[in-house]
Design a protein around this nucleic acid. Structure first.
Length: 496
RNA sequence: GGCGCCGUGGCCAAGUGGUAAGGCAGAGGUUUGCAAAACCUCCAUUCACCGGUUCGAAUCCGGUCGGCGCCUCCA
């Protein structure tokens, strides 16, 4: 049984769904005005693991993650680029999907876009006006926070304690139209020649929060089992969603609120003004997406994750944390490759019990994830598992080595569980390892042909027992970062 | 001003009352023609600091110092 920290109660509590064995999960997706950054990656990997884990535990999940494709930031960017807002949003939506797929996130069952839900927005805003929770002011529509009972309970704020405009972004003209400084826009009027839609209140665009209330209700119903997003969304976004939705429907909006911690770059929040902003597309040429994936799992999802970088000698940044993660992913794939390389004739029936760390891994992984998705502990469990697989392979590779069929089957089952729960290790091992090697070789200016030639030369030298020449080649290559591995059948290479 | 988070070995990090997981780096070993990989062993009497509660605290309480986030742009 999964237990998850609930932002509303501040406690870890069992994840209980309305319908048995069906979880309705809604996660706030991106506003598509730019490429997905590393913080998005972290966030959506976390919810991906949530969904994977629920499914691996035998639960059906309806996973909805919206695309916010109407927003002032999109308009601003599009203007700057001389592009139609819709075109920019479409481009970024496509890119976002590609990036999420590269990170091995499962595709949500639904990815609703705001631009497909204007009618629903009109309907909910109208309902709120009719019920006295919203008012029209000069082409805008505002939600009256004082009319919402319990406003502020998710974020633990009291309206009277909040300093209006504390963030220094107060819009004077807009403030004039509001009855209370904390009221927020459901609909924002816009000049007729500006990007917008014709609402019952005139030309304009929806306010920021209304789209999630409308789309989650449209796709999953009035009450969600779980609603998730980044910590920064607790206030005001989710607080306002609750107010809107509950005032409109009279039902509890979400039974469980989950929020992930932020990404910090060299100890500070990532932002463009600080020059520490990285999109995943910046990182993919440097590292395998799956390395980034594992890296994000090295810290508990609610804690801040630190991305540290330093400038490399060639001018491109280096990320020691992701480099370390990549070594671990390489270990994972080389272990998987070793397992599949065990020759069939070495497999034997055996009455020996399957080693504990092999057979118990899927259950151990499930157990740690059940406890508030403890992924760092999951990785520790993975480490024990991989070690056990390597021991199995060591035994199978020795002279007259054998491997028990049951143990090998358990190892394969472990890899299946690892991919199902964490989305790790599911790619083709050889292709993955070659890609990592060739990327590094390319960066070092080394071609595979060059290395293959040197290996051939060395094989010839070794055949003649000219070990001095063989060692000279090894050293020559090692100086360039090429590491040779001799096996009984062949010599392979990796890049350090 | 209000709300909240964090401080664990050289680095990253789990652990929220019962005597410090895991990873990286480092040292030694098995193995290897030599290597690498893999595996084994070692590597925090101690959890920012001070005081308190308790049979027992990294974990609870109070205080101090240090770092960070949110308060209608934000995953």
């Amino acid at each position: 049984m999964l237990r998850i920290q609930d932002t509303m109660t501040g406690e870890k509590r069992p994840f209980e769904t309305q319908e048995k064995n069906l979880a309705k999960v809604y996660v706030c997706g991106p506003t598509v005005y730019d490429y997905a950054h590393i913080g998005h990656a972290r966030c959506f990997i976390i919810y991906d693991v949530l969904v994977r884990h629920l499914r691996a535990s035998g639960m059906a999940v309806e996973y909805v993650r919206n695309i916010t494709d109407i927003d002032d930031k999109i308009l601003k960017r599009a203007k700057e680029a001389g592009e139609e807002p819709r075109a920019l949003a479409d481009r970024m939506t496509t890119a976002f999907g590609e990036d999420m797929a590269a990170l091995r996130n499962v595709k949500p069952d639904e990815e609703p876009r705001v631009s497909d839900h204007l009618e629903g927005i009109y309907a909910m805003v109208t309902t709120l006006i009719d019920k006295g929770h919203a008012y029209v002011a000069d082409g805008d529509v505002y939600f009256s926070v004082r009319s919402a009972e319990g406003y502020g309970r998710l974020s633990g704020r009291k309206l009277d304690d909040m300093a209006a405009g504390a963030s220094g972004r107060l819009d004077e003209a807009q403030a004039q139209r509001k009855k209370d400084p904390a009221d927020f826009a459901l609909w924002k009027g816009a000049p007729l020649d500006e990007w917008g839609w014709e609402s019952p209140w005139g030309h304009g665009r929806p306010g920021w929060h209304i789209e999630c209330s409308v789309m989650s209700t449209a796709k999953l119903g009035e009450t969600l089992d779980l609603h998730g997003g980044g910590l920064d969304l607790v206030f005001p976004h989710h607080e306002n969603e609750i107010a809107q939705s509950e005032c409109a429907t009279g039902k509890v909006f979400a039974n469980h609120w989950m929020h992930n911690g932020f990404l910090e770059v060299n100890g500070e929040k990532m932002s463009k003004s600080l020059g520490n902003f990285f999109t995943v597309r910046n990182l993919f040429p440097l590292h395998e997406p799956e390395s980034i994936r594992l890296w994000t799992m090295s810290v508990h999802y609610r804690a801040p994750l630190g991305l540290n970088f330093e400038d490399g000698e060639d001018g491109t940044p280096r990320f020691p944390g992701i480099e370390e993660a990549e070594r671990r992913v390489e270990y994972l794939y080389s272990t998987r490759r070793r397992l599949s390389d065990i020759a069939p004739q070495r497999l034997v029936d055996s009455s020996e019990p399957v080693p504990e760390d092999l057979g118990a891994f899927p259950a151990a992984l499930k157990l740690v994830l059940d406890d508030d998705l403890n992924m760092p502990k999951g990785l520790a469990a993975m480490q024990d598992f991989l070690k056990a697989v390597n021991e199995l392979c060591d035994k199978a590779q020795g002279k007259k080595g054998k491997a028990a069929k049951a143990a090998v089957a358990a190892a394969h089952a472990g890899f299946v569980a690892l991919d199902a729960e964490l989305g790790l290790g599911g790619q083709d091992p050889v292709a993955f390892l070659d890609r990592v090697r060739d990327r590094r070789a390319g960066k070092a200016g080394i071609t595979p042909e060059y290395v293959e030639q040197k290996i051939a030369d060395r094989v010839a030298a070794r055949a003649e027992k000219d070990f001095a020449a063989a060692d000279a080649i090894r050293e020559e290559l090692a100086a360039k970062g090429v590491e040779l591995h001799d096996s009984p059948t062949a010599t392979t290479w990796t890049m350090t």
